[in-house]
Every structure is written in C-alpha cells, then in structure tokens.
Computed example of a mutant assay.
Amino acid sequence: MPIYYFHVVGQGSRIEDLEGTDCADLSAAKEEAVACARELMAHAIRQGRDISSRSIEVRNARGGVVLTLPFRQAISEAE
C-alpha cells in the first residue's frame, strides 16, 4: 500500500508529516486529507481561531506533490 505525507501549509508556516499514512490510492489519500482538514478546522474553531486559509499538501513516498487541498474546499467536499 502506498504511503502519503500530509503537510499543513499556511501563511509562511509549514507543519511536516514525518510519519505518513498508508492509503490504498490517491482517492483514499484525498479522503484522508479532507478528514484531516475538517478535524483541524473544528479544533481551531473551538479555540476561536480561523485557519480556513491553510491547505494540506499531499506528497507521495518520493516527495512529489500529488494533491493540494485548500481547507475551504474540505468544507464542501462530498464524502
């Protein structure tokens, strides 16, 4: 199963995913990115912060960017 890394990127900051997550394919990785973005936004909202301008950069095992998911897109993304 391929491994994907989910880095959170926003306004001059970057939080690296050093462990990665096994996903069956890119579609599954996108679902994981949507879930992650929603969870991070929900946590931020509970603290009174707006992080909706951030995005998740999904990279494959070779380090190539395979998807960039803006947090705002995760709000309306179908499950």
Rank of each mutant, 00 (worst) to 15 (best):
residue 30 K to H: 14
residue 30 K to R: 15
residue 30 K to F: 02
residue 30 K to L: 12
residue 30 K to Y: 09
residue 31 E to D: 15
residue 31 E to I: 03
residue 31 E to S: 14
residue 32 E to D: 08
residue 33 A to K: 11
residue 34 V to L: 06
residue 34 V to S: 08
residue 34 V to K: 14
residue 34 V to R: 10
residue 35 A to D: 11
residue 35 A to E: 13
residue 35 A to G: 13
residue 36 C to Y: 15
residue 36 C to K: 10
residue 36 C to D: 04
residue 37 A to L: 02
residue 37 A to T: 01
residue 38 R to E: 14
residue 39 E to C: 04
residue 39 E to W: 12
residue 40 L to D: 01
residue 40 L to Y: 13
residue 40 L to G: 01
residue 40 L to C: 01
residue 41 M to F: 12
residue 41 M to L: 12
residue 41 M to C: 12
residue 41 M to A: 06
residue 41 M to D: 08
residue 41 M to N: 09
residue 42 A to P: 00
residue 42 A to I: 00
residue 42 A to M: 10
residue 42 A to E: 13
residue 42 A to Y: 04
residue 43 H to Q: 06
residue 43 H to F: 13
residue 43 H to W: 05
residue 43 H to I: 05
residue 44 A to T: 01
residue 44 A to W: 02
residue 46 R to D: 10
residue 46 R to M: 05
residue 46 R to I: 00
residue 47 Q to P: 00
residue 47 Q to D: 15
residue 47 Q to S: 10
residue 48 G to P: 03
residue 48 G to L: 06
residue 48 G to W: 11
residue 48 G to K: 06
residue 49 R to V: 02
residue 49 R to Y: 13
residue 49 R to E: 13
residue 49 R to A: 13
residue 49 R to K: 14
residue 50 D to L: 03
residue 50 D to T: 04
residue 50 D to S: 07
residue 51 I to V: 07
residue 51 I to M: 06
residue 51 I to D: 05
residue 53 S to N: 12
residue 54 R to C: 10
residue 56 I to Y: 07
residue 56 I to L: 15
residue 57 E to W: 02
residue 57 E to R: 14
residue 57 E to T: 02
residue 57 E to I: 01
residue 58 V to F: 06
residue 58 V to H: 08
residue 58 V to C: 07
residue 59 R to C: 08
residue 59 R to G: 01
residue 59 R to M: 03
residue 60 N to L: 06
residue 60 N to W: 02
residue 60 N to V: 01
residue 60 N to M: 08
residue 61 A to H: 07
residue 61 A to M: 04
residue 61 A to C: 01
